[in-house]
């Protein structure tokens, strides 16, 4: 069975999606990621989608689900490197990535996760979503 590798970067997990995600693979990713968070006690997840040409509503739902699930386990989720064409398409599609934070690059994504983590541990809960409605 094909798998998407999950890398550990300090307190965070990094997933780079480089292949076409058909449904079963995407669902596997969701499972693997959530169990990795629980095993490693990761405080955040970076999902690099810069190699993805297409994100449809199903993929969008997977990303939202991962974000909501990790959140319940005290880990933030940042989607990194979305392509312009994908961003425009998602907006036209009407898809909102609830609970998902976004960053331009992996560095910026890590900085964002760190900042959120500091906020969470200092007891100030941040706003639930960076996406507008």
């Amino acid at each position: 069975m094909e798998k998407i590798p999950i890398l550990r970067m300090g307190p965070f997990l990094l997933v780079t999606i480089q292949v076409d995600l058909y449904d079963q693979l995407a669902l596997n990713l969701e499972n693997d990621l959530i169990s990795s968070i629980s095993k490693t006690g990761a405080k955040g997840v970076l999902i690099d989608i810069s190699a993805l040409d297409i994100v449809d509503s199903f993929m969008g739902r997977i990303l939202s689900n991962i974000a909501s699930m990790s959140r319940l386990m005290d880990a933030g989720t940042v989607v990194v490197g979305m392509q312009p064409a994908v961003a425009i398409t998602l907006v036209e599609l009407g898809l909102k990535l609830h609970g998902v934070y976004t960053a331009l690059t992996i560095e910026k994504g890590i900085a964002l996760l760190q900042q959120q983590f500091t906020l969470r541990t200092s007891g100030q809960e941040e706003d639930t979503s960076s996406q507008d409605e």
Binding site: V78, V79, V80, G81, M82, P84, V86, A87, I88, L90, V91, E92, L97, Y101, T102, A103, L104, T105, K108, G109, S130, Q131, D132
Partner: peptide
């Protein structure tokens, strides 16, 4: 305008 802002945010800006 809202669409443009949303797309920008999706990119992480």
């Amino acid at each position: 305008l809202i669409k443009t802002v949303s797309a920008t945010r999706l990119m992480g800006a």
